[in-house]
Simulated scan of single mutants.
Amino acid sequence: MTRYVALLRGINVNGITIAMTDLAETFHELGYTDVKTVLASGNVIFSIDSPLVDKTDAAALKARIEKALAARFDYEAWIVLVDAESLDRIVRAYPFDADRDGWHPYVMFSSDPGHLSELAGHRKELEAAEERIELGHGVLYWEVRKSVGIKSAFSKKSAKLKYRNTTTTRNLHTLHKLLELTPG
Rank of each mutant, 00 (worst) to 15 (best):
M1Y: 12
M1K: 14
T2F: 04
R3M: 10
R3D: 11
Y4R: 11
Y4W: 14
Y4Q: 14
V5D: 03
V5M: 10
L7E: 02
L8W: 05
G10L: 03
I11R: 11
V13R: 09
V13G: 11
G15W: 02
G15I: 05
I16P: 01
I18V: 15
A19D: 14
T21V: 15
L23K: 09
A24V: 02
A24Y: 02
T26I: 03
T26R: 06
F27S: 05
E29I: 09
G31Q: 08
T33Y: 03
T33C: 05
D34H: 15
V35H: 08
K36A: 14
K36L: 13
T37C: 13
T37H: 13
A40C: 02
A40Q: 14
S41I: 03
S41F: 05
G42C: 10
N43W: 09
V44D: 12
I45W: 14
I45F: 14
F46S: 04
D49T: 13
S50M: 15
P51Y: 14
P51H: 14
L52W: 13
L52K: 15
V53M: 14
D54Q: 10
T56G: 12
D57K: 11
D57R: 08
A60E: 15
A60Q: 15
K62F: 01
A63F: 07
A63Y: 05
R64Y: 06
I65G: 07
E66C: 11
L69C: 10
A70M: 04
A71C: 05
R72W: 10
R72F: 12
F73A: 12
F73M: 13
Y75G: 13
W78N: 09
V80M: 11
L81T: 12
D83Q: 09
D83L: 10
A84L: 08
L87F: 10
D88K: 09
R89V: 03
I90E: 07
V91Y: 10
R92M: 04
A93H: 09
P95L: 02
F96E: 12
A98P: 00
A98L: 00
A98T: 00
D99N: 13
D99F: 09
R100E: 10
W103V: 01
P105L: 04
Y106P: 01
S110Q: 05
S111N: 07
S111Q: 07
P113L: 03
H115S: 08
L116S: 05
S117P: 00
S117Y: 00
E118L: 15
L119I: 08
L119S: 07
A120F: 11
E125V: 00
E125Q: 04
E125D: 05
A128D: 12
A129V: 13
E131M: 06
E134L: 06
L140E: 05
Y141E: 09
Y141Q: 06
R145M: 11
S147N: 12
S147P: 06
G149W: 06
K151F: 08
S152T: 00
S152R: 00
F154E: 12
S155K: 03
K156M: 07
S158H: 01
K160E: 09
K160G: 07
K162V: 08
R164E: 04
N165S: 04
N165G: 01
T168W: 06
N171Q: 01
H173K: 09
H173V: 01
H173W: 00
L175P: 04
K177I: 01
K177M: 07
E180G: 08
L181Y: 00
T182W: 03
P183M: 02
P183Y: 08
P183A: 05
G184F: 12
G184Y: 11
G184Q: 11
